Simulated assay, not measured.
Amino acid sequence: MTQVIRSSDCENSPRNQRVEQIALALLGAGDLPDSVLSEGAVWDRNGGAISGRAAIQTLRATLPRCEEIRVDQVVSHGKAGTASGTLRRPGQRDRLFCHVIRFTSTAASEIAQIVSFEHAGGAHGR
């Protein structure tokens, strides 16, 4: 099971909580229902972009699990939100992550695009 550590700054709005839940699901800690992704959603990430709800869900199911995810910042405004922090996978050093999530509307009910970054050398140096 993945341990999730949240900054208390991230719990200040329902929209931020939604963005955080989506980011965690992209890292394998939680569910991402099909209804949250638009049919033509795009996920730009290390290794290239993939298009379509089914392709995103298939890729998500194959990603290696995280031992720990530390969510340091979640911000949302209008049709977009970001979540960032550090993650650790078994046998690896910490990595920085950031997910930028663009919704189809300001209602933030359906995702149009996700841009994800990971970078070696996490801030906590484990």
Rank of each mutant, 00 (worst) to 15 (best):
Q3K: 15
V4H: 01
I5L: 12
D9I: 11
C10D: 14
N12T: 13
V19G: 01
Q21H: 07
L27W: 03
L32M: 13
L32H: 04
L32G: 03
D34T: 09
S35W: 11
V36N: 04
L37K: 00
L37P: 00
S38I: 10
S38A: 05
W43C: 01
D44Q: 10
D44T: 15
R45C: 01
N46K: 08
G47Q: 07
G47F: 03
R53E: 03
Q57H: 09
Q57F: 00
L59S: 03
A61Q: 09
A61T: 02
P64M: 08
R65Q: 15
E68I: 11
V71G: 05
V74I: 08
V75K: 06
S76L: 03
H77T: 12
H77L: 11
G78H: 10
G78S: 15
G81W: 00
S84Y: 07
S84L: 13
G85D: 06
G85N: 02
T86V: 15
R88W: 05
R89T: 01
G91A: 09
R93A: 14
D94A: 06
R95I: 03
L96M: 07
L96C: 06
I101E: 01
F103K: 00
T104R: 02
S105T: 14
A107H: 04
E110R: 02
E110S: 06
I111N: 00
A112H: 05
V115F: 07
V115D: 05
F117R: 06
H119M: 13
H119P: 05
A120P: 07
H124D: 15
